[in-house]
Computed example of a mutant assay.
Amino acid sequence: MLKSILNALVSGLKASARLLGSVLTAPLRMFGRGGDAGAPPKIPMPQPYEAPPEDRTKMYEDIARAIMCWAADSVLADRPVDLPPGLPLTVREWLPGLSRAECWSLMDADNNVVCGHIQGLFPLAGVRAVQRLPRVRAWPAELRTPESAGFAAIAELEMLGQPGA
Rank of each mutant, 00 (worst) to 15 (best):
A165H: 14
P84R: 06
E147V: 10
S74H: 03
R29V: 14
S22R: 14
R100D: 05
L143S: 07
L20I: 13
F31P: 00
A64Q: 04
H117F: 01
I67T: 04
L9R: 11
P80I: 04
P46D: 07
S22E: 15
A17W: 10
L83E: 12
I67W: 00
L133F: 05
I67V: 13
L121V: 11
W70C: 02
G12N: 04
V10S: 06
D108N: 12
M45A: 15
P140T: 12
P52K: 14
V114N: 00
M159N: 04
V114A: 01
T145L: 13
A153L: 06
R29H: 10
L157G: 02
G126E: 01
V75T: 03
L13P: 00
R128W: 01
R128A: 13
G32I: 07
L160D: 10
P123R: 05
A77P: 02
S148N: 09
M1K: 10
V23P: 00
T90W: 06
R65M: 01
L6K: 15
F31G: 09
I67K: 02
A101M: 09
V127A: 02
R18Y: 13
S11P: 00
A109I: 02
L106C: 07
D36E: 12
P84N: 06
L143W: 04
P140C: 02
T25E: 14
G38H: 08
T90P: 11
Y49L: 14
I118N: 05
D82M: 07
C103Q: 03
R135H: 08
L19T: 12
A51C: 11
D55F: 07
P27M: 09
V91E: 03
A141F: 05
F122P: 00
R144E: 13
M1Y: 06
G126H: 07
V114S: 01
R137K: 15
R56D: 05
V113I: 07
S105C: 13
W139A: 03
N111Q: 14
F122N: 08
K58G: 05
R56P: 00
G97W: 10
T25H: 06
M30H: 09
L160F: 04
W139K: 05
K58C: 11
P27F: 08
R144K: 09
A101P: 01
R135Y: 06
C103S: 06
L89K: 08
L28K: 07
P27L: 11
P41F: 11
D73R: 15
L121Q: 09
G120P: 08
S4W: 04
